[in-house]
Structures are given as C-alpha cells and as structure tokens.
C-alpha cells in the first residue's frame, strides 16, 4: 500500500532492483579487463573502494543519473530515470536520451548485455545505504569498481550529488553549477528576507495516500521544503514519531487532523507537478472543507511549488525560480 510512498524510497527501490539484477546477471563477466591507470581510495556507503583516479567509462543508476549527467561525467550508460526528465535541461535531456539505457526503472527491464557492452571502469549506484545492502555487490564488482552513494534524508542530495561527482571525476562542472545555485539562493534570500521573516509555514506534500484518507505534511528538510529553506522559509513543527529517511522530516496524518496540523500556519505551500497541475493527493486535501476553513487559506496565503523532487543543483535552480514565482505576491503583502 505504501510501497512507493516516498520518492526517496521509490528511486531507491528501483535502483536497488536494477542493481541487484545487474549483479545477478553479471556473474559471467568476472575477470573482464579492468581499466588501467592510477587509482585512489574512495569512501562510499559500501566501504572504501579503489577506483580509477580519472574514470573514463562510468555507468550511473538511480539518483546518480541526473547528478552525473549534470556534472558532465564521462557516462557510457545510465538507468532509466523517468521522473527526473521534467527537471532536466534541454541539453541534459538530450544527453540522457542519447546515452545507452542499460536498464529501465525496474529489474524486469534490466539489459545486462547492454551494460557489458559499455565496459565501464566505474559503476556509481545512487541508492540509500539500506537498499544497497540488498545488492549482490560482489558480482557487480566483477564488472568494475562499484561505489554506492545514496541519500538518507531528502536534503542530503547536496552532499550525495557532490560525492557522486567526485567519484566520477566531475567536480569541476559540479562546483560551477553549485556556485550558480548558491548565488541564486542568496539573491532570493535577500529579496524575500522581510516577507518570510517570522512567517510560520506548513507544507502539503505530493505523496499523501488518498486510499488511506491521509495527507503528507512536510517539515524543514523534506523534499518539498528543503530548497525553500535555502531562501529563508521556515516550516514550523516536527514529525511526531521520527522514522528513517524521509519519514524523519515528513508524516502522514489523517485528513481529519488537517485543522490541528495547519491551524497555526501563516502560509501554506503545497507540491504541484512540473506542469503546474495539482497531484491527486493534494487535490484531495484542497477539495475538503477542512482545508477551506484553515486561516491561511482564508487569507489566500497558499503557494504552489513546482520541482520539489529536485536532487541536483541544476534542478534545484528551477525550484528556486518556481519559488520566486510563487512567493512574488508576498512582496506586496
């Protein structure tokens, strides 16, 4: 019922299944020629791994796909990452489409032959640590050195994407994009300093479970809030019972609890799709009279946010633009 609850879990599961299948089917590749040249020790989620200092043929899966495309890493194959497509720049999307798809979103679509054909000298697995434990890493390593670098909490995409770029020897471009993001975030922080100062925010995420009559409330550091946090937005409260991963910063109360959850909010943000449409789980909340009775809603202090799934600095710049657009009316209040 909640198999695909969080996007973190979604991506992780897909990437894990993919990597597992790759591992299982890679047994025949043992002993294949490895890249020669200088190596270095790299600390990843799967321990310290000896990897090429300047990898030339990198395969990326999961969250590593968008981050390494953006960092101009020497990719020779990627897994499918459909959900990230709306946030890719035209150039990155072209690159993504042109790269050999060595696997789809699920294990059933894994194409081992395609992976073997690429003869990678490094495989970057972008899944969280617990998921990587389910992978037959030994078999994967028979193809090429494997580094697992995945996020834990949503906001960790910053450190994770940097580490992925570092492993792939693509820090130069990564740092350029990061600088652009930092500059834009700083500019918006100044622009909205007064408007956001003291404003108690709450966020309705896009992963509520309508079939269970609940909604997703996201706090500071969650997918829907962490980039807004970089421009000074403060989301009040915290998760009642902290769980692992995204569950540490978001929870799923019943719709009946909407008034108690958001009554104190001065303003409410909510996740919308990349095309601006409202996800069914958010629509469920907004259609209820409980929502219409909230003080923030009555004061017309609700703001849609696009691109809340951003997991790279390039994508996050689109989120900043979306925040700038949605928060603009605050400057006149």
């Amino acid at each position: 019922m909640s198999l695909l609850r969080s996007r973190l879990t979604q991506g992780a599961a897909a990437a894990a299944v993919l990597a597992l299948t790759v591992g299982l089917s890679a047994c025949g590749a043992a002993g294949e020629e490895q890249t020669e040249g200088p190596t270095r020790q790299f600390t990843a989620d799967n321990g310290t791994v000896e990897i090429p200092q300047n990898p030339k043929r990198v395969v990326a899966t999961g969250y590593a796909v968008p981050s390494l495309i953006e960092a101009d890493a020497p990719l020779v194959g990627v897994s499918s990452w459909e959900r990230g497509e709306p946030m890719m720049s035209d150039e990155d999307l072209t690159t993504y489409k042109e790269l050999p798809q060595v696997a789809g979103e699920t294990a059933a679509e894994t194409n081992y032959d395609a992976i073997a054909e690429q003869n990678p000298d490094l495989i970057v697995i972008g899944v969280p640590k617990p998921i990587f434990a389910e992978i037959d890493a030994e078999r994967l390593e028979s193809i090429a050195p494997v580094v697992a670098v995945g996020p834990d909490v949503p906001s960790a995409w910053r450190e994770v994407s940097r580490k992925q770029a570092d492993a792939a020897g693509a820090l130069e471009r990564f740092d350029e994009v990061k600088s652009e993001y930092d500059a834009k975030a700083e500019k918006l922080k100044n622009k909205y300093a007064d408007a956001l100062s003291g404003l108690k925010l709450a966020h309705v995420g896009g992963y509520g479970e309508v079939e269970n009559g609940n909604f997703q409330r996201e706090f500071d550091g969650s997918w829907g809030t962490n980039i807004a946090g970089d421009i000074g937005a403060k989301y009040y409260g915290e998760v009642e019972e902290k769980g692992k991963g995204s569950r540490a910063v978001s929870e799923y109360p019943s719709l009946e609890e909407l008034p108690s959850a958001m009554r104190e909010a001065d303003a409410i943000t909510y996740t919308v799709n990349a095309d601006g449409s409202v996800p069914q789980s958010v629509e469920y909340v907004m259609d209820s009279n409980l929502w219409k009775n909230l003080p923030a809603v009555k004061k017309d202090m609700t703001f849609p946010i696009k691109y809340t799934e951003a997991a790279t600095y390039g994508q996050a710049q689109q989120t900043l633009d979306a925040l700038d657009e949605t928060f603009a009316p605050l400057l006149n209040k």
Binding site: L4, A108, V210, N212, G213, S288
Partner: peptide, 22 residues
C-alpha cells in the same frame, strides 16, 4: 511496464472506504 500506471492503480486496488468521501 508503466510505473505511473501502477501508481494510479494502487489507489484503487487496495480496497478502501477512505478518500472517497469527496
């Protein structure tokens, strides 16, 4: 073969009285 389809089907397939009130 279609994760999006699976996601939409999931809502209906669990068999529930919740979320239908609107």
């Amino acid at each position: 073969t279609s994760p999006d389809t699976l996601d939409k089907y999931r809502f209906w397939a669990v068999g529930s009285l919740a979320g239908r009130e609107q």
